[in-house]
C-alpha cells in the first residue's frame, strides 16, 4: 500500500506561510507540592521554559515530547486556557494580552484546541447536536434551531461523518473513539478558526484509524488554510504529517527544524535517544535465538 505523504512546498523557505500565531519566550511556572491550605509553599517548577514558536498558515507544526515534557502545557498556553507566567502571544501580529471574558471569546474564534481523550472531551450527557450547536451559536451569527442544526450538519460533513442526522441525535457514548474525535474537530471548526491546536489527536485511537484521522487534519489544513500545531509523542507521524518539528524535553525545545531532517539526522542527544528507543520491528529480525 503506498501512502502519499502530504507534500509541503515549504522546504527550505521559512517565509512561505505567513505566521498566524506566534509565541515568544513563553514561560509557565507551577507551584510545586501541595497547593491547598494555609501554609503554601513557594517552590515553583517550570513546565514551559522560554519557548518561542510560530504557526504558519496552511502548515502543520509538530510538537514532539514525552509526557511531562511540557508540550500539552504549551498547547494550553497558546489556547490561553492557562495564564502565562511570562512571554507574549501574538495573533495575526497583535499582542493578545490577558484572557478576559470578551477577548477570550474573540480569541477562541480564531484559535481552537482539540484534546486527546475522545472519551472525555465530549460532555457525556449532551447529544452531538447540542455540543456542536453551542459552538455554532457562540461563534457564528445564527439563530433559529433549524439554521443551527443545518450548520451542525454541515460541520459533520466536513469531518466525514454521515449521514449527519444519524450522528446529530447520538450521545457521545454511542460513538466510537474515532467518531468522537471527528466530532471534536467539527466543534473546533464551528468557530471558523485560523489556528488549530491538536493535542495528541490520535494517541488514544486504534492504530488502524489513526491514519484517517491524521489525513483529516491534513485535509482541513489545506482546505481551510489552517495553521496547525500537532502535539504528539510519536516521532513517526510527526515526520509524515508536519513540515516543521519541535522536540520538547523538560519544558525546553531541544531541537527544531524541518521535519525530515530532524528525524533522519537528529543533532540533539535527547532526540537521538528518543529515536533509538522507538520500537522497531526490523530489529528482531537480526536477533538470534
Amino acid at each position: 500500500m503506498s501512502i502519499a505523504a502530504p507534500t509541503h512546498d515549504t522546504s527550505g523557505s521559512p517565509t512561505a506561510g505567513e505566521i498566524v500565531l506566534e509565541g515568544t519566550h513563553l514561560v509557565k511556572e507551577y507551584a510545586v507540592g501541595e497547593r491547598r491550605g494555609v501554609l503554601r509553599r513557594r517552590r515553583t517548577m517550570r513546565a514551559v521554559d522560554d519557548v518561542s514558536l510560530g504557526l504558519r498558515r496552511a502548515e502543520v507544526t509538530a510538537l514532539v515530547g514525552q509526557s511531562g515534557s511540557g508540550k500539552s502545557t504549551l498547547g494550553r498556553l497558546l489556547a490561553r486556557l492557562v495564564p502565562l507566567t511570562s512571554g507574549d502571544i501574538r495573533l495575526h501580529g497583535s499582542d493578545v494580552g490577558a484572557a478576559t471574558g470578551a477577548s477570550m471569546r474573540r480569541y477562541t474564534g480564531e484559535v481552537q484546541l482539540t484534546l486527546q481523550d475522545p472519551f472525555a472531551s465530549l460532555n457525556p450527557l449532551r447529544r452531538v447536536d447540542y455540543i456542536l450547536g453551542r459552538a455554532v451559536r457562540l461563534h457564528q451569527d445564527v439563530s433559529g434551531a433549524d439554521e443551527v442544526r443545518a450548520r451542525c450538519a454541515g460541520l459533520l460533513e466536513r469531518v466525514g461523518l454521515g449521514p449527519t442526522d444519524h450522528y446529530l441525535d447520538r450521545f457521545p457514548h454511542e460513538l466510537s473513539g474515532g467518531e468522537r474525535q471527528r466530532v471534536s474537530f467539527a466543534r473546533a471548526l464551528a468557530a471558523g478558526p485560523s489556528v488549530l491546536l491538536a493535542d495528541e489527536p490520535v494517541s488514544m485511537l486504534d492504530v488502524t484509524i489513526r491514519k484517517s484521522m491524521l489525513d483529516l487534519i491534513d485535509d482541513l489544513r489545506r482546505e481551510e488554510d489552517l495553521a496547525v500545531l500537532y502535539i504528539t509523542h510519536d516521532l513517526g507521524s510527526a515526520r509524515r504529517y508536519s513540515s516543521e518539528v519541535l522536540v520538547m524535553h523538560e519544558g525546553r525545545v531541544v531541537e527544531r527544524g524541518e521535519s525530515e531532517s530532524v528525524i533522519s539526522d537528529p543533532q540533539d542527544a535527547y532526540t537521538k535517544r528518543l529515536l533509538a528507543a522507538a520500537p522497531d520491528p526490523s530489529r528482531s529480525l537480526g536477533r538470534s535465538r
Binding site: S67, Q116, D117, F119, A120, P124, L125, G160, L161, G162, H166, R170, P172, H173, E174, L175, S176, G177, G178, E179, R182, E200, S203, M204, D206, T208, I209, K211, S212, H233
Partner: peptide, 30 residues
C-alpha cells in the same frame, strides 16, 4: 498516557466509557 481517563469520577466514567466499544458506527475504523 497515564493522565488518560484514569481516576475519573465514577458517575461520568461509567456513562462515558459504557458504550465505548459496543457500538459499531459507520466510522472510518479500518
Amino acid at each position: 498516557l497515564p493522565a488518560g481517563g484514569a481516576g475519573g469520577p465514577a458517575a461520568a466514567a461509567a456513562t462515558t466509557r459504557a458504550g465505548a466499544a459496543g457500538t459499531s458506527g459507520s466510522g472510518a475504523a479500518l
